[in-house]
Design a protein around this nucleic acid. Sequence first.
DNA 1: TTAGTTCTTGTCAAATATTGTCTAAATCTA
DNA 2: TAGATTTAGACAATATTTGACAAGAACTAA
Lengths: 97, 97
Amino acid sequence: MILSELLKSKRETKNLLLREVASMIDTDTALISKIEKGDRKPTREQIDKLAIALDIEHSKLLKLWLSEKVYEDVKGEEVAIDAIKIALKRIKSEEKN
Amino acid sequence: MILSELLKSKRETKNLLLREVASMIDTDTALISKIEKGDRKPTREQIDKLAIALDIEHSKLLKLWLSEKVYEDVKGEEVAIDAIKIALKRIKSEEKN
DNA sequence: TTAGTTCTTGTCAAATATTGTCTAAATCTA
DNA sequence: TAGATTTAGACAATATTTGACAAGAACTAA
């Protein structure tokens, strides 16, 4: 499940209008619409607010959001998988210390 | 081995001056110095040129460069590892198609 | 030491990219 | 159709990245 899909489906489950979510996020409906369509990425602050507004576990949303940044960095690259694995190793080796 | 270290050690192995590498990359020595110190990230074009100038396997350099973008995205995050893994799965599942 | 060179650092403007907002059009619903 | 909701386009405002310059620090050789 992609971030934009999750946000949209959660909003629908809760029967909220774009306008209602927008006001909780302090922005306008157009932006929320774009976020739900994947045309715009939410900022980190917006992620925080969205988690509250839509009652989604914050770390779950954050993971998705970060994973999409990672995905965007490497998508379409021959060496995408290798590159990700190198980063993963680095993170893991740092956590040990 | 981090990107900046690789670039510096390769340059030293080949006994090149910053100024020489800089001219091959069409920039000034200050930028190369910063890249070798990790203060600046090379652009993708610079990566391509550096691979040639320093005689480094291009895909190896590219992997390192991409992996550092990924690393920067998630470093310091609680959920860093999970986020990377999600991205990895997504890439992998796309490659199957 | 001094002169010459290599490397490093700081700063700043230019170039890029991202974001927020407005307007109007499209879509939906009753 | 009218009224509400959602979407799309355009563009200004912001933020980030980049390149270039200049001055300083570190090193070398005589």
